[in-house]
């Protein structure tokens, strides 16, 4: 038995020595080829991977009210944020025109990405109305709000809030807020007298226009 062991040991020892040399060589060549592979597989870093396109940014939000009785009477609420959501420039808000007491206006919203020259409105109204929802806010103004009869109806029966009707009841100055939510869990276009309410969505638009005048 012991002799048997010794022979095996001798065999394995010689086997070890030649093998160790072989594996050393193998190992070194493996490293070399890997290092070569590494240096060849470099990419076009110097271009920074290409100029970033910002496909989802909404730079211009235009909220246009047209007097139902007089198409030339237009109130425009405009917010322009040329560098997008995370750029340091704050949006420039402007209100042109004033509402007339007693008149009813139909409003639509336009969403535009000036960085990529992209019309976002159709993405909301045509492509994915069921995943979007407008919620409005009126503060300090005596107005009656309704989602227009021509407004887009979602699959769940709620109205998107893209086209809305606003009646100016008495003179005053206040604010109008427009919010657009994406992927809300629940929406209700009848809540808050039609201004709408939602839960669980994330805001794509949230702008408060102040100094809106009814005269």
């Amino acid at each position: 038995m012991k002799t048997n062991n010794s022979i095996n040991n001798i065999k394995s020892m010689t086997f070890l020595n030649t093998n160790a040399m072989k594996t050393t060589k193998l190992f070194l060549s493996a490293i070399l080829s890997l290092a070569l592979f590494a240096s060849c597989s470099n990419d076009d870093d110097s271009s920074g991977g290409g100029e970033p396109n910002e496909d989802e940014v909404i730079t211009n939000v235009t909220f246009r009210f047209v007097n139902n009785a007089d198409a030339s009477d237009v109130v425009t609420l405009l917010s322009v944020d040329p560098d997008g959501d995370d750029g340091p420039l704050e949006p420039t808000l402007s209100v042109t025109g004033a509402f007339n007491v007693g008149d009813t206006y139909t409003a639509t919203v336009n969403l535009y990405n000036s960085i990529e020259d992209e019309d976002i409105t159709i993405e909301v109204t045509e492509d994915e109305p069921d995943e979007h929802f407008f919620v409005y806010g009126i503060n300090g103004l005596d107005m009656t709000f309704a989602r227009s009869a021509n407004d887009i109806e979602r699959m769940d029966g709620n109205f998107l809030g893209f086209e809305t009707t606003w009646t100016a009841n008495s003179a005053g100055t206040g604010t109008i807020t427009v919010q657009l939510f994406h992927e809300s869990e629940t929406v209700d276009s009848n809540a808050n007298e039609g201004l709408g309410a939602q839960t669980g969505g994330s805001a794509d638009v949230n702008i408060t226009f102040s100094d809106v005048v009814i005269q």
Binding site: A38, D43, D45, G49, G84, D86
Partner: peptide, 20 residues
Amino acid sequence: RFQDNLAPNTGVRRLIPNYE
């Protein structure tokens, strides 16, 4: 050590840029 970060265009601004 050599390290390379590659950030292709995803339609949003890169949080971390390409770097070596």
